[in-house]
Design a protein around this nucleic acid. Sequence first.
DNA 1: TTGTAGGCGTTATCAA
DNA 2: TTGATAACGCCTACAA
Lengths: 338, 338
Amino acid sequence: MSTTIRDVAKRLKLSITTVSRALDGYDDVAESTRELVISTAREMRYVPNRAARQLRRQRTETIGYILPAEGTGFTDLFFSEFIAGLSDEATLGHYDLLVAAAPPDSKAEKELYKRWVQGGKVDGIIVNRVRLSDWRLHFLSRQHVPHVSLERSLSHLDFVGVEVDSLSGLLELIAYLVSQGHRRIAYIGGGSDLKIDHDRFAGYQAGLEAAAIGSDPVLVVRSNITSEDGYRAARQLLDLANRPTAIVCINDLTAIGAMHAAHERGLMIGRDVSIAGFDGIADAAHTEPPLTTLEQPVYTVARQLAHMLLAMIAGTPLETKQVRIQPKLLIRSSTGRA
Amino acid sequence: MSTTIRDVAKRLKLSITTVSRALDGYDDVAESTRELVISTAREMRYVPNRAARQLRRQRTETIGYILPAEGTGFTDLFFSEFIAGLSDEATLGHYDLLVAAAPPDSKAEKELYKRWVQGGKVDGIIVNRVRLSDWRLHFLSRQHVPHVSLERSLSHLDFVGVEVDSLSGLLELIAYLVSQGHRRIAYIGGGSDLKIDHDRFAGYQAGLEAAAIGSDPVLVVRSNITSEDGYRAARQLLDLANRPTAIVCINDLTAIGAMHAAHERGLMIGRDVSIAGFDGIADAAHTEPPLTTLEQPVYTVARQLAHMLLAMIAGTPLETKQVRIQPKLLIRSSTGRA
DNA sequence: TTGTAGGCGTTATCAA
DNA sequence: TTGATAACGCCTACAA
């Protein structure tokens, strides 16, 4: 092992108490000894042992995040941005971030939550891809584990976190498409138990309704949230006898797949068919043509979430428990007149 | 806190010793007591406290990975897949994965390594985006911290990990482009201190040499490894009086940006200009046109790395310390005849 | 202003 | 086969 507080104390002929308090910035330590302690500690490369400190303080200084992923082929710029944000904010607060991957609602997911929470491996947890009825949130509430979530579930009352207003975002997007003359607008979504699907689909429907367009179930396709699935769903839509003139996708990844399908059919995107996404990942600016999307500031949101979580853990009262963010409609050339 | 081993022992009127050993599967415990202990523990929802176990065992059951990223906009699909692989393998071995983000070669990066290693926060570390002369590897060696890396640095002798043969991959790619009649081939790279840049650039040069094509420094551009930078670099290349007919990019992300620049110039990719990437991320199959790339099995590599690391930590001798992987050339329509 | 001592929850040594 | 007991390294109430 490395140097312990004992080694430092011994070297200085001080008690470990004094060393500990000098380092932790208590004010009942003589300025001269403090300086001596600090410089010696640095010189000896002393770093407190985390396990010991955790055991004593009953705090882990670690927060956890579980990626909703299964095996290979799972990639989304959203998540790497999200993790970067969480981790940066955690580091700022001298916290660490524990990450794992588990398929949504799987046994593995349950096991992880149990291990982390009951084993005291984390002080708090960040949840995203919330489901309409989400046992994770109830579990965390019941166990009194601090947690924040991106999106709220319907049944979860004491929600703390960030909510992106998908509904009004989609409302705006649909209104824009309608203004461009579109009447046959399709929707490619994810599992209908997902909160984001629920909200975005509701926005889609509300948008159609506002424009007095009847909804056609044939134009709604649901699958997993990957570019591969977007590709397949779009093929299906574009093969319809009466095919849509616009396709709205649950996120950018799906939209990228959908664009591929349109290209394959020889359609000119933005003229023959309009396609839009959601997220505003970096790639979306560089697709051909650049993708119209509803941008949400993923990195900032992640930092905000981590910040709120750390405050909860520290017991600091939060200014705002529920932050609401409006996605920003970025109109690029993947959408145009019908 | 949750139930402790004490609670279980008290309930059963056994000593904590017996409970501990029954649960850990020692064979000097009566079969009947073991069963009793296990069932009671489960019933009481007992999960061992990690901090205590760590302190006693001097092992954290945690491995660490630090993302080479700075703030927003610096992420890559590569990473989410990589993290998923690491985490899956870790979970399999009852390990957890600690993740942080830090700009390469920054003070923050050093701080993190120090905290994790000296504070005993992790048992081992996975390193990627290796630099030619990489203090991280030396630091870890010197501190006797088990570690594996994707790519090896030039100066690091006791390398354990996975190496993707970028050089021969690029050699193959260039040969293919040459066979298509290309003579003016450009290279968009990353920082020249990066091992992957070093290897891929060497492969690029060797490829040119093999075809007896003189290298033109104007055709080599280096920047950060993002789609935004790829976009900018490609603009610069395409504005040359004597512009390249093919552009080889250090990775897919960069290539996606480069394609955007080509589209913007009204060039038909695959005919007017050929573009190729490296990585084989999911999106690359769905670009317009689909991207020719050198595919490496990121998820599998990540699992392999984690597996090797866990073996090192456990002290199990490794069958192979250095795995070499050939990237696979996927020829798609973003490249064609000159 | 500094030091003594007890305990956080486990595991491991040794004795019964 | 089981049980006392001593660490692991740190923090902190209390005493000096």
